Deep mutational scan, measured.
Amino acid sequence: IDAAQIVDEALEQGITLFVVNNRLQYETSRDSIPTELLNKWKQHKQELIDFLNQLD
């Protein structure tokens, strides 16, 4: 699994991931984030931050 897949998966569930001051953040209108997704974010945090920083 790679960062792009995780970002896409989040988007499919209505969650936008982004980076502020090198910290992973998210925006969503959902009430809660699925635990499975949160765990993936934690496991791949640095990859996600690097990936999202490249997009900007």
Rank of each mutant, 00 (worst) to 15 (best):
N22A: 06
N22Q: 06
E9H: 05
L52W: 02
E9P: 00
I33R: 01
E27F: 13
L37K: 06
R23C: 14
Q25Y: 15
I6E: 03
D8H: 15
I15N: 01
I6L: 13
P34R: 03
N21I: 03
V7T: 03
A3Y: 11
A10H: 01
T16P: 02
F51L: 04
L17E: 01
D50G: 06
L24D: 00
V7I: 14
D50L: 11
A10Q: 01
S32T: 13
N22F: 05
I1S: 10
T28Q: 03
Q13P: 00
L38K: 08
W41P: 00
N39S: 08
L48H: 00
K45V: 14
N22H: 07
T28C: 05
H44W: 12
R30N: 10
S29E: 14
I6P: 01
K40V: 09
I1A: 10
Q25I: 11
W41C: 05
E36P: 07
K45M: 15
L48N: 00
F18H: 11
E47N: 06
P34G: 04
N53V: 10
S32Q: 12
Q25K: 10
T28N: 05
D8T: 15
E36L: 08
N21F: 06
E47K: 08
I33M: 04
K42R: 13
I1N: 08
E27Q: 13
T16M: 12
H44P: 00
Y26Q: 02
I15V: 11
T16D: 05
V20H: 13
V7Q: 02
K40R: 07
D2H: 11
S32F: 13
T28R: 03
D50Q: 10
D8Y: 15
N53R: 11
A4K: 15
T28H: 06
E36W: 10
E12R: 15
N53S: 12
A3R: 02
D31T: 07
F18N: 06
V19L: 07
K42Q: 14
L38V: 10
Q13F: 15
A3T: 06
I1L: 11
E36C: 05
L37A: 02
I49E: 04
L48P: 00
R30V: 07
V20F: 11
P34V: 03
G14W: 04
Q46F: 08
T16G: 04
D2E: 10
N39P: 02
I33C: 02
T35F: 12
Q13L: 15
L52R: 00
T28L: 04
D56T: 12
R30D: 05
I1M: 13
K45A: 15
T28K: 03
D56N: 15
R23F: 12
S32M: 08
D8W: 15
T28V: 05
E12V: 09
K45N: 15
N39I: 13
Q43P: 03
L17Q: 00
N39A: 12
D31H: 06
H44G: 03
N39C: 07
Y26R: 01
T35H: 11
I33Y: 03
L52K: 00
